[in-house]
Each structure stands twice: as structure tokens, then as C-alpha cells.
Design a protein around this nucleic acid. Structure first.
Lengths: 242, 242
DNA sequence: AGTGCGTTTCGGCATAGTCGAACGAGCTTC
DNA sequence: GAAGCTCGTTCGACTATGCCGAAACGCACT
């Protein structure tokens, strides 16, 4: 782990927390000398990863971050393969559909239907159905101190073995009030690379069995296109206990 | 400029060029020892900025880039203020509308109407109306060797003073064949922060004067919300020659 | 005009990063 | 089936590099 690169990425993480920050704020947040942070920020500045407001001197994220994120999406096979399937799934079930990938203790939405507006949003893994699936397969990790999002947020996960065996996880107003979800894993030949979820208002919960079956079909179809031979994805320990 | 941070960002830039790259490819592209690149990549890996494919060992951009880009968009006042205006402008003119910001010798689209699908795309500044506006105001720079996109691409810019005085720049099939555009600057109190464009098929070109006027109105309205006092934005030298 | 804050610059010291070479795994070839 | 190759990865030593303290600049407010 290279120190200065690590610090640069921490600077970007700090900048994610607020619209704009002063050099001193970043320095105290990272417990570093302002001049140290200045050198890092100047380098990020040269690459457009951060910009400095002309009048106030404050720093914020720069447009190069958007370019990176967009290239990431364009190069993501999961997204390309999932897009037509989730459009059809949204039409068929009338639900909102999301596809997400793991990112540490969060999940990031990389595709959505019927509207793509949710693409890019980040949700704590322990608070959503997508995250529970990824946690069960070891693609996400639990945060040190799980954050309570709503009164319904479950801070310690149920048996992940059940999630793995059934290939399903649920979420009942645990991330945002009035929103429920049902998720299933998506895998490549050798790992669980993401999850797909149906998201509905609490009034429409629970979902009819037809929606559940449609979700299963879609997750399996996408996984097959990505090279997975079995679905739901099996792990050695589960195969042994079965 | 911190060397290792600069190199890390160069690694990300290399990764933007192809879906996936091997460690050796990155090393040769940057003219560095593989072990040096390995240290950098490992750090980026720990932060989710890159991911490594389990089977092939190849590297690609990671989901953290998407999170960064999304936060950038959320924190961008230009986008927030422009969104309602460009929706209305798209309705009124029937054209596609784009708002972009400068990024070196490129422009990055940060808002679009009627559909947001173009958000995140990158266009060389010299090849599009958006870029010509930003070039004229010094927000973009010309690349060392401008790239020819179509047969119509103009490699050396016309008089930027005219663009500044009229507040308009045009684009006739210079970036993509069959696509024409008309752009105007958007400014804050002390700088040109972006540009807004109408984009239409070549068949609908030239645009009627009403569309031109609507674009002007919208650019002025957004600029006013962002704190600009005059529009089109004036530079000292132009004010002197006037 | 004075004062305060925050950004920026500069130089010495020591740490942290760079590189070369060796290791190990996976794949192809013979 | 075994040997060669190529790739990613690890380790250790050298020294160049980035880190920090303190001082200077610019700006806004008093």
C-alpha cells in the first residue's frame, strides 16, 4: 500500500462527504499537515479529479471523476448484459428493477429500469436486499459499526446460508421508509459479481409469486450470459452440508 | 506534483483506454517497472478504484469510480440549476439539450434533456459547439494534436473573439456525422463554468431564430442563478476593444 | 490601515517509494 | 506427461522522494 496514493484517495473520500471543503478541513479530517495535503490536492487538481473555486479557494470533486465513472459503466459487462433483461423484467412485473455491484460495505447501483436515474447511488450493504445477497456470498463486508437507516434497519444479518441456498434476500423498509425489495445474486463463471432486485412501495409488499419467479429467471439468464454454469451460485461449504 | 499520486492517476487514465489491461501493459504504457505499477495498483485496488478479474488477473476500473462521479454530479450547482431550464428548453424547441463542463482539452456532459443518457460522455473540445464556446473563454485548452473525428472536423479554431462577443458557437457534423449543434456559455460571478447546447440532426439544420433566442434566454437565466451579473460573459480585452 | 485566517512556498531530514531480481502459478508446447 | 514460457507477485537495498515546520503571500473583515 503506497502511502501517498492512499492519502490521495482518502482526500477524494473526504471530498465525497461535503460539497466543498477547505484545505484545512481536509487536513484535520486526515490528521495531516496542511502542506502535505496541499501537495496531494495540487496533483489531483492537475488531473481534474478536484477543482478549486476561484473566489473562495475551496476544493470540490472535479469532472474527471465523472469521466472515470462513465468509462467504468461502459466497460462493465454485467451492465451491458443486464440492460435488456431488466427492461423486460420491469415491464413484466411493473416493479422498479436495480442491478448493483459490491463496494466494500456498500453496494453501488450500475443499472436500473424503467428509469436509469438510480444509477450511481450507494446504499449500505446491511440495509438493503441487494447488499444482503452480496454479503451472504462474501462479496461485501460488514461495516465496523453498521448505521441505522430507519427504525426497521437490521444491524446484524440473519443466517447467510439461507440466502445462499434460496438465492433470495428481502428488505422491508430497512433502507428507506415505504420501500421494500427482493434480491437475487448474479454470477460469472467463478464469482458472484452483483445482484438484481425488485423494488416496490410498501403497499405492494409482499410481491406475488410470479414476480419472484420472474426475478429468478432473469438472474439466472444474466448469470448464464456471463458464463455461470450453475444457479443459484454454490459455495463449497454449502455443497458439503447439502 | 507528487510523483506517485501522479502515476496512480496515469494508471487510471490508461485503464480508461481499454476494457481491461494486464499489469505489464500498464507498465509499458507508463514506461515504469512492473513492480512499481503493482504497488500503485494494489493501493487503487484497496479503495475499489480498480478491480482485478479473478481468473485472468487483468485489471479494470472499479465501482468506486462510479461513486465518485455520482457524488460529483450531486454536488454540482451548475447541474442542479440547469436541470429545470433545459427540460423546458427541450420541450419548447423539440431539440436535444446538453450542458457540459470543461476538462482539459475535452468537455464532459453533466446534464441532458429530454433524456439523461448522454450524461458522462466526453467530446474533444475542438470538435463540438460546447467545446468551442469553452475554448473561446479559456476554460478549455487545445490538444497538442487535435484529432479528426469526421471529414468536417475543423482542427484550427476560428476567431474566438467572435464567439465571445456573440455568445454563440456552432458545430456542423464535426464530432459525429449527421449531428449539428449550437452552444452558448454559462457563467458564474467570476468565470465561465460551462456551456449549454442544442443538438439536432443535420436535416433540421440550420435552427430557426426562435431556437437561438430560446438558447440565449436559457443560458442567461442559468448564469443569473449562478451569480453572473452580465451575459454574455465579458473579458477585459474584449471590453477594451469594444 | 491593521489584524486574522487560510492558502501557498521553501528547505532539510528521514522516510517511503522505486527498481532489479528471484519466486510461484498457470498455460502452451513439445 | 514434462519442460518451457509468460505473467503476476514478493522481497530487499538504495536513494530519490515526499513529508513536515516555519515563514510569506493574499484576501476579507474590523
Amino acid at each position: 500500500m503506497i502511502q501517498s496514493v492512499d492519502r490521495a484517495l482518502r482526500v477524494l473520500a473526504v471530498l465525497q462527504g461535503a460539497r466543498r471543503r477547505s484545505l484545512g478541513e481536509i487536513a484535520t479530517a486526515l490528521e495531516l499537515a496542511p502542506s502535505t495535503v496541499h501537495g496531494i490536492v495540487r496533483t489531483l487538481l492537475a488531473h481534474g479529479m478536484v477543482v478549486q473555486e476561484r473566489d473562495s479557494g475551496l476544493y470540490r470533486l472535479g469532472p474527471a471523476t465523472l469521466r472515470l465513472g462513465n468509462v467504468y459503466l461502459d466497460n462493465l459487462e454485467l451492465r451491458a448484459h443486464a440492460q435488456p433483461w431488466i427492461s423486460e423484467l420491469a415491464d413484466r412485473t411493473g416493479c422498479a428493477v436495480r442491478v448493483a455491484v459490491p463496494l466494500g460495505d456498500d453496494v453501488v447501483v450500475v443499472a436500473a429500469a424503467p428509469t436509469p436515474v438510480e444509477v450511481g447511488i450507494v446504499i449500505p450493504a446491511h440495509a438493503c436486499a441487494l447488499g444482503k445477497v452480496l454479503l451472504a456470498h462474501g462479496a461485501c463486508v460488514l461495516p465496523d459499526r453498521p448505521r441505522r437507516m430507519t427504525g426497521e434497519t437490521v444491524l446484524s444479518p440473519r443466517d447467510p446460508g439461507i440466502v445462499r441456498r434460496t438465492g433470495l434476500a428481502t428488505e422491508v423498509e430497512e433502507a428507506v421508509l415505504g420501500e421494500c425489495g427482493l434480491a437475487a445474486p448474479v454470477a460469472t463463471a467463478d464469482e458472484v459479481c452483483g445482484a438484481i432486485a425488485l423494488v416496490v412501495p410498501a403497499a405492494d409488499w409482499p410481491l406475488p409469486p410470479t414476480a419472484l419467479a420472474a426475478l429468478h429467471q432473469t438472474a439466472r439468464a444474466i448469470s448464464r450470459e456471463l458464463g455461470a454454469s450453475t444457479w443459484p451460485p454454490q459455495r463449497e461449504e454449502d455443497a458439503a452440508t447439502a
